[in-house]
Design a protein around this nucleic acid. Structure first.
Lengths: 188, 188
DNA sequence: CTAAACTGATTGCGAATTGCAACCGGTTGC
DNA sequence: GCAACCGGTTGCAATTCGCAATCAGTTTAG
């Protein structure tokens, strides 16, 4: 793995355009899919940002900053958003209603992180000291299984990618999760 | 969350025994299952160690250290093994054949990280520049689906927990994954 | 029209974490 | 008895993290 880095270095050194150099800064340790995923998402914040975008409908910088349960700081948030943008997990576009606001959206690649989050949530729910309010979504998603995940991903494709979705009867998965959360918060 | 930390600090400060201090170092940021999972596994190495224990049959310190595709350093490995032990993801016992060797095993909690790894591998395989050799396991696991995962987890329960497993016909999932990997390495 | 609040960030700085190499005492195999 | 191997530990430099303060431009309230 280190050999590979050395190889890349001697191969590219001095011959890179600045533009390429900035995109090649990530020296990958191996071509293993788990390792590559961890190099993109393997820290304490990236997946939390994705979580908030998926389940909390946070689409603006300030929303992600202040409505975060864990209290991310602004420089970390800015850095992670930049990385996720570069990796193609999210996109950013200007908000037409406010010249400074940006709207962050999940890409298809980002939406397909839902099963990862769902499995991670199920594991945490089973083995870690999860709060009742914050665990209810994990429980419902786990019970709903891959079928529910697929439905939720379809909803995300609608709200983040603008994809048309065939109409369903009854409340959406997102609405059901939110309602369940609120009913726990309000003491049932 | 920060308030909680401050509260704990003023509550415990100066009144902690050293023993309690070492076990209370982890100040959790929130009771969200995803966050709690990330506080245990949210770094670049922990899940790679689990991966090597699951798919590479690495059970000793030196095996994990030297046969790692990515080249983990010994202090990091020691630190992560300690954390995973404390969190109940793995266990350690003395190797009866060698007074210095320890045998690390996955607990049931650790074995149930397989779906997380499988989803992460599937995502990486789909979206990241995965090597053919190192991607073949991810492809087979993805195609095999939850049924194959469950079978593999049963095999892990046998090799790590000493659980009895009802006999199956044909090669095990572990053997099939290994054979597929080798056939790719040997140029088919 | 002006002041306050809000926008998405950036900067500075101390503290914690990481990565690397060297090293350690004890054990095993030859 | 001696080299190789065992699971780690230590020292140190470099990077990253977390926090608070700050910034320039934008919107809103009075």
């Amino acid at each position: 793995m280190i050999e590979l880095v050395r190889y890349c270095k001697q191969f590219f050194e001095g011959a890179l355009t600045p533009a390429l150099e900035t995109t090649m800064t990530d020296a990958q340790r191996s071509g293993c899919p788990i390792n590559l995923s961890l190099e993109v998402l393997g820290d304490k914040w990236s997946l939390l940002i994705i979580r908030d975008m998926m389940f909390g409908n946070r689409r603006h910088f300030r929303e992600l900053l202040t409505k975060s349960e864990e209290g991310i700081s602004s420089n970390i948030l800015a850095d992670r958003l930049k990385t996720l943008l570069e990796q193609g997990v999210i996109t950013r576009e200007d908000d037409p209603t406010h010249k400074q606001k940006g709207i962050y959206s999940l890409t298809e690649q980002g939406i397909e992180l839902l099963p990862v989050l769902a499995q991670m949530a199920a594991w945490g729910y089973k083995y870690l000291p999860v709060t009742e309010e914050l665990g209810i979504r994990a429980r419902l998603l786990s019970e709903g299984g891959p079928k529910m995940w697929a439905e939720f991903m379809d909803e995300l494709r609608e709200s983040h990618l603008g994809a048309k979705r065939r109409r369903r009867s009854g409340p959406s998965v997102g609405e059901r999760l939110q309602a369940a959360y609120e009913s726990v918060v309000n003491g049932r």
